[in-house]
Design a protein around this nucleic acid. Structure first.
Lengths: 133, 133
DNA sequence: CTGAATCCCGTCCGATACTG
DNA sequence: CAGTATCGGACGGGATTCAG
């Protein structure tokens, strides 16, 4: 058939467009730092190296699984370094790499805007919700 | 029993800690802008008001459902304004509010860091992955 | 044209149990 | 101490269909 559905047309446009946004550095950065636990772990490590167990205690609400997963991702991206000391028992330290440290100012900028403007957002949200009910 | 499980101890700590991070402005901001579509829609609106259909075309890969949902969220948060012109057919324009405009520099900061450093991250990722296989 | 409602599948993530 | 393995519920989000 000659005619195409809306879905097909979207798919064609998306083929080119999505390829772009998927590789968009900003998109990738957002995907990384917006991870529920990444910002917390990075912040915990901002003060210096920590052991696995210490991280688990500092970021108290994180599960073992997510802590490990988060650390693996950060290590994979070169934002955090992992150092194993083969003693008994084994000791593993995690530390921000220079690249990871470079992320701190960015997070700080986010924090600054958030603290300055989230009140307005929350107020808008309350107003909006009250109009609904 | 007097002893508590690890989960229980985590829950106690989390009760206080999570209450904090859930209300943490930075956390909330991250939750908002990290939404898959928010950054794209906001960027599309950075150049000026757009109609619903125009947005759908600009952000080609977005589905109707997610476009509407994203716009509702942004409207709720006071970042985007919605203007209905009761003609036939109906016309609806979306526009960034001053609050929404204030978000642009923040996104720009993110973009700047990403463009400067994501190459390193990608390189680290490639190295890490090659070590695995 | 703009949008709401429904179905449904994939992914995330928490709990739990086991290993070196 | 520092993980790994597996299961299952919750949720995001796409396709489709209906409505004003």
């Amino acid at each position: 058939m000659a005619t195409r559905t809306a879905a097909q047309r979207r798919a064609e446009a998306a083929a080119a467009y999505d390829a772009y946004i998927a590789e968009c550095p900003t998109r990738q950065l957002l995907d990384r730092i917006s991870d529920k636990w990444v910002s917390l772990v990075v912040n915990a490590l901002a003060g210096g190296p920590l052991r696995y167990g210490e991280l688990a205690r500092v970021v108290a609400s994180i599960s073992q699984k997510m802590l490990t997963q988060t650390l693996r991702n950060l290590e994979r991206d070169g934002l955090v370094s992992r150092t194993v000391t083969p003693s008994v028992p084994v000791r593993v330290d995690y530390e921000l790499t220079p690249l990871g440290v470079g992320l701190l100012p960015v997070m700080q900028a986010l924090k600054t805007w958030a603290e300055a403007n989230m009140d307005d957002v929350l107020a808008a949200r309350a107003t909006y919700d009250s109009g609904i009910n």
